[in-house]
Design a protein around this nucleic acid. Structure first.
Lengths: 221, 221
DNA sequence: GTCTATAGGCTGATAGAC
DNA sequence: GTCTATCAGCCTATAGAC
């Protein structure tokens, strides 16, 4: 019974797999928060309760660890998104389902949205070509849903690419700002804006579906 | 006539003001692209065609230069947003006006959205308390517009805070991903997604106004 | 597999000449 | 105000013991 509880198994000495996973987890959190250059291998090793030399041993160095984290993060995301492709429900329902799914993915991997934003900000500098398809599947999922909605007439004629940028942006931004909204605002004496993620997800889904629906042109102009 | 052409005035030796501005401009672009830790003072000086010791002389060091850039960026943004506060046009028109204004601000300061995202990602670590109000004015502008729209009945009853996160997120994300969309996608043999900013802004404004409008509940559920 | 010790490179800051 | 030369600190990677 080696892998009954992969996430929180207590570290044992000379358990290579546990070490690797601890380093991956520590790195994911620290890289997401401070960026690749803002983190030292010593900080990662410290958080993982491992020796810093093990980063080179297991991943070939700091950059290798970072790549491994990107692969794992975006790979599992792409796998989760596969389920949506299969479904043939109406586009608006799929869109709501997509938003829910993002919520579930982020709950399991809190560093995901910050990694997405950081990669995109730096132009994907450290994103291997082999991981690019997985990364793009996030956008592709939305695009194909919107394309279907437009094709079947359930959505107005919008540009799917424009739409997917906006939706992904709203979602990634929300989750990436959680710490800022809670800590920075509080420290400045302002009321923190900390809605439950579920509330935000519902809001966005509703806004999108309504915004994409046909209907009388907007009230004023 | 010292300031007829502040942006592109040719550098003259021993012109302190020109040096300062060149360093600010170079730093803004490099910090936006690579983050604070991803940039060396040498790189900034090189791009500004100045000596790296001048960063310490004029700004007290790398961190001082970064702070000065944040102040300038968010300060001018807040000033631009003031105009909206004054207007008393209907909320949906104001929202469209806000989106246009963001487009204009970004055109003048291309590093703005990336700076916003980077600060928010790192929890505002390097954002001075005195700059926080300016930074928050971006969100405050949207929130007060939405509040007005809900109050006057022109918008449905949505949470203004949720709404402002989504709109700002869509906008900042779009502009922050321009380089990624053009370079990374092209390098991977995929068609670049590079709509004119104006097209995206129109799309988002339309989506928001429609999404916030009253109307028959969404088609399917 | 893990740990210690150290090497080697790079970076930000500054003293002092101009 | 600007520039050159230099230094101290930090950081990643690795050789080698266990």
């Amino acid at each position: 019974m080696r892998s009954t509880a992969p996430p929180a198994r207590p570290r044992r000495p000379h358990d290579a797999e546990a070490t690797r996973e601890a380093l991956l987890a520590a790195g994911a959190e620290l890289f997401a928060e401070h960026g690749f250059d803002g983190v030292t291998v010593e900080a990662i090793a410290g958080r993982a309760q491992a020796n810093k030399a093990l980063i080179s041993y297991h991943f070939g160095g700091k950059a290798g660890l970072y790549s491994a984290i990107l692969s794992a993060t975006f790979g599992s995301m792409a796998a989760d998104l596969e389920a949506l492709r299969a479904s043939d429900r109406p586009a608006d329902e799929l869109l709501r389902e997509f938003v829910r799914l993002v919520g579930a993915m982020v709950a399991r991997r809190p560093s995901l949205p910050r990694m997405v934003l950081r990669e995109v900000l730096s132009g994907g500098e450290r994103l291997h070509d082999r991981d690019l398809p997985h990364f793009l599947s996030l956008f592709g999922a939305v695009r194909s849903i919107v394309e279907r909605g437009v094709r079947t007439g359930r959505f107005r004629k919008v540009d799917p690419a424009l739409t997917h940028i906006g939706l992904i942006g709203s979602l990634m931004f929300f989750f990436s700002t959680e710490r800022f909204r809670q800590q920075k605002l509080a420290r400045a004496g302002l009321p923190a804006i900390a809605p439950p993620p579920q509330k935000y997800l519902d809001h966005v889904a509703e806004l999108m579906v309504r915004g994409l629906a046909h209907g009388p042109a907007r009230p004023g102009r």
